[in-house]
Simulated assay, not measured.
Amino acid sequence: MKTILIYDGSFDGLLSAIFYVFEFKLTNVCIKKREHSQQNFFDAEEVIITDKIKATRVWKGLSKKLSARGRQKIYKAFLSEIPTIETAILHFIKRTFSSEVPIENDYSDPSILEIDKVAKKVDREKHRMDAFVRFKLTKDDIYFASIEPDFNVLPLNADHFKKRYADQKWLLYDVKRKYGVYYDLKNVQTVKLEISSNTNNTSNASTYFTLDEINFQQLWGIYFKNSNIPSRKNMRLHIKHIPKRYWKYLPEKKF
């Protein structure tokens, strides 16, 4: 009989589940997020309560066995939200603790190779968000931008924007996952909000954004349109550098 460990979807929750695996010496085990679990008659389910102390113990243990890059791979793979990624992460961590030599670059192991590939995909998505996010000034004097990335990269983007816009209040909101990161000129904090996906529609602009901001967005769109040279247009190259799925973030693509 397999044991299914159900956790709340947080990274601390995942580490708490992994602590449970080691604590009870489980072998035939699978870890799943609550929303991905499907009860059946053949497996035993255990609901894992997130325990920050236990999660920290696992992470500190990994810091003694893995490089900072190796630990980042685990975290980035987790942010991919791939339904089976917990299995690969568990295997990665079990091998890490059981081996006397570093294993994080042992790509002959399918799970370690998967973690590496997924982490790179998440990293690429993070850098694209860094490049393509466009903030707009709201009537509340907060710079706002919404994103809808394939992976849950918002925690990775926060530090970049804190350094880049240290003198401005801003809110970066993930429409798909319905949460955001807010910077108040001192700290970045995670906030749970329900914000309509229609916020960025041109027809709703006057409801949320200042008149100066709307005029600036229009001016930038006109400049972008008129500065292009049609005879030198290379749409294939353009899409390669800026895939179409990111165009909705760019005001210059709305004119």
Rank of each mutant, 00 (worst) to 15 (best):
L5C: 03
D8F: 14
S10H: 09
A17K: 01
E23K: 15
V29A: 03
E45C: 03
E46Q: 15
V47D: 06
D51F: 07
K54V: 00
T56C: 03
R57E: 12
W59R: 05
W59C: 03
L62G: 00
K65W: 06
L66K: 01
R71V: 03
K73E: 03
Y75I: 10
L79F: 03
S80N: 07
I82A: 10
I93H: 00
R95V: 08
T96D: 01
S98N: 11
I103G: 02
D106F: 10
D109S: 10
P110Y: 09
L113R: 12
K120C: 08
K121Q: 15
H127D: 01
R128M: 11
M129I: 15
R134A: 00
K136N: 04
L137P: 00
D140Q: 08
D140V: 01
D141E: 13
A145Y: 04
A145E: 01
I147T: 10
D150C: 02
V153A: 00
L154Y: 02
L172W: 07
Y173E: 07
D174C: 06
K178N: 14
V181Q: 11
Y183L: 07
D184I: 13
V191W: 02
S197Q: 09
N200G: 06
T207H: 06
L211W: 12
D212T: 09
D212E: 15
E213Y: 00
I214K: 10
G221H: 08
G221I: 07
G221A: 15
N228F: 09
I229T: 10
R232N: 09
N234G: 10
N234K: 15
M235D: 12
K244L: 09
R245Y: 03
Y246P: 01
L250D: 02
E252C: 03
K253G: 02
